[in-house]
Simulated scan of single mutants.
Amino acid sequence: MKTLLKQAIQVRENAYAPYSKFKVGAAVRGKSGQIYLGCNVENASYGLTSCAERNAIFQAIAQGEQNLSEILVVADTQEPVVPCGACRQVMQEFGIKTVYRSNLAGTVVQHKLSELLPIGFKSTDMEV
């Protein structure tokens, strides 16, 4: 977890957040042990903004790893930052079981994804 935190803090500095000034970093670990990084990227059309968590997950996918295990998200907040609902749903899609929420003060809170997303949409929900 310490490695995830260190790398997420570092990649957070690359965030493109000219509108909100709210920089976020994320580090996700694949089942292989490889770590993938992401930061938030804002857009003047706010709906096109992409969260750090999804960018880290998509980086893993782009590198060929689809089975992920844990993710850490960090921001400069008083309490550890909380992933949005869209990110939680994407975490579920790729098998993330453990979510670490953190802040720059070094406070880290560990959750099972099932605590943060108790009823998520799954592919089996599309079966007739």
Rank of each mutant, 00 (worst) to 15 (best):
M1L: 11
M1E: 07
K6G: 03
Q7F: 01
Q7V: 01
A8F: 01
Q10D: 14
V11C: 07
R12C: 12
R12P: 02
N14K: 15
A15M: 05
Y16C: 09
P18M: 09
Y19H: 13
S20N: 07
S20E: 08
K21V: 05
K21D: 12
K21L: 14
K23R: 13
V24D: 01
G25S: 06
G25E: 08
R29H: 03
G30C: 05
S32K: 13
S32A: 09
G33L: 05
Y36H: 09
L37P: 00
L37C: 06
N40T: 10
N40K: 02
V41W: 06
N43R: 08
A44R: 14
A44N: 15
Y46A: 13
G47S: 11
L48R: 09
S50R: 12
S50V: 15
C51Q: 11
C51V: 09
E53A: 15
E53Q: 10
E53K: 03
A56P: 03
I57E: 01
F58A: 10
A60F: 03
I61G: 01
Q63V: 08
E65N: 08
E70T: 10
I71E: 00
I71D: 00
Q78D: 15
E79W: 06
V81L: 07
V81C: 10
P83Q: 05
C84L: 07
Q89Y: 03
M91I: 04
E93P: 00
G95L: 06
G95C: 07
I96N: 00
K97M: 11
T98M: 04
T98K: 05
V99P: 00
S102K: 02
L104A: 04
L104Y: 02
G106Y: 08
T107D: 11
T107I: 15
V108M: 02
V109R: 12
K112N: 15
L113R: 02
E115S: 10
L116G: 04
L117N: 11
L117S: 08
I119V: 15
I119C: 13
G120Y: 06
G120R: 05
K122S: 11
K122P: 01
T124F: 14
T124G: 03
D125V: 05
